[in-house]
Design a protein around this nucleic acid. Structure first.
Length: 295
DNA sequence: TATAACTCCTGAAGGC
DNA sequence: TGCCTTCAGGAGTTAT
């Protein structure tokens, strides 16, 4: 599933291959691919003739800035952006949802098996540079639909001390908080399980029952997991996540928690437990990650 | 206002 | 072989 490292790999590939390119046409093949876009499929004609000034990302959201107008992309669960260079065929595919053609012959194909992803036209708005604290004296431009998304853990401006304080004000379970993109962005089910495992915290522990030391450890481990996954090119279990060239990442070989239910814990040998949580699976070690606090 | 539950969707996998 | 059920989960919407 595309989480922050996978989206960053895609963003970097798009930046390398499409920066400065001029859009000639955006064609959509499935209504859900543009369900959140201003003006629907017809609204995308506004990008014709515009050039890509930058390819930016916050958490799992990425966007092309084209002369002050944003083309946002969310990959959902199974979205892929495949770039074909000029002269290289860009064949149709059963899951082809949209296609972006450029003046130099480059083509971006948006494939999405489960249709949770989308393309979206939007305007940009100013957001305080230290959002979500909101005390900043400077600001930056963010697409309006992304403005409520918090900084991600690889953002140089992400303050882990402030993040721990905000986390402590919540009254919910820690994994639910980690998945809350308005608290911190970029984490999905896979990296949440990995970070909680490394920090030895049970996913159902209450946020306000964790010490600042535990939260500090958790956020540092979360950041480290994301960095390692990014270096490995992301996590791929199947063909649902690939980079802009169609290649897979290798971090799935380094997973210690996600998908390990029923297998022995790499630390203590106890059988890893898999539970249903928030309509998704959650895997943890019942010994290393006890529900009851030991402090 | 904060939190929790529901919903969207497709295809692989397993059971019968 | 074919049908049915279950599972996977990001994020917006709705309910509490």
């Amino acid at each position: 599933m595309p989480e922050l490292p996978e989206v960053e790999v895609v963003r970097a590939g798009l930046e390398r291959l499409t920066l400065g390119a001029t859009v000639t046409e955006i064609t959509t093949f499935h209504p859900r691919a543009v369900r959140r876009s201003e003006g629907g499929p017809e609204g995308l004609t506004a990008f014709s003739g515009r050039s890509i000034d930058s390819v930016a990302r916050r958490g799992k959201f990425l966007w092309f800035d084209m002369d002050g107008m944003a083309l946002n992309v969310h990959l959902g669960m199974s979205g892929q952006l495949l770039v074909s260079r000029p002269g290289v065929p860009a064949p149709d595919h059963p899951h082809l949802r949209a296609r972006i053609d450029f003046a130099d012959g480059t083509v971006i194909r948006f494939l999405d098996q489960r249709t949770f992803g989308y393309l979206q036209r939007s305007s940009l708005t100013e957001v305080p540079d230290d959002f979500p604290a909101g005390q900043g004296t400077t600001s930056r431009l963010i697409p309006v639909p992304v403005a409520h998304i918090a900084r991600d853990l690889l953002d140089p401006g992400c303050d882990l001390v402030a993040l721990s304080k905000r986390t402590r004000t919540k009254r919910t379970e820690i994994k639910r908080a980690m998945l809350d993109q308005t608290l911190v962005s970029g984490l999905g089910n896979i990296y949440c399980d990995e970070a909680l495992y490394r920090a030895r915290i049970n996913p159902r522990r209450k946020t306000n029952g964790l010490s600042y030391a535990q939260l500090d450890e958790l956020w540092h481990q979360s950041r480290e997991v994301l960095r390692e996954a990014l270096l490995a090119g992301g996590t791929s279990f199947d063909s649902l996540y690939v980079n802009v060239n169609g290649s897979s990442g290798y971090f799935s070989r380094s997973l210690n928690a996600y998908g390990q239910g029923g297998k022995p814990c790499g630390r203590c040998g106890a059988i890893m437990r898999k539970i249903q949580f928030m309509n998704r699976s959650s895997t943890y070690c019942p010994i290393c990650q006890p529900f009851a606090s030991r402090t």
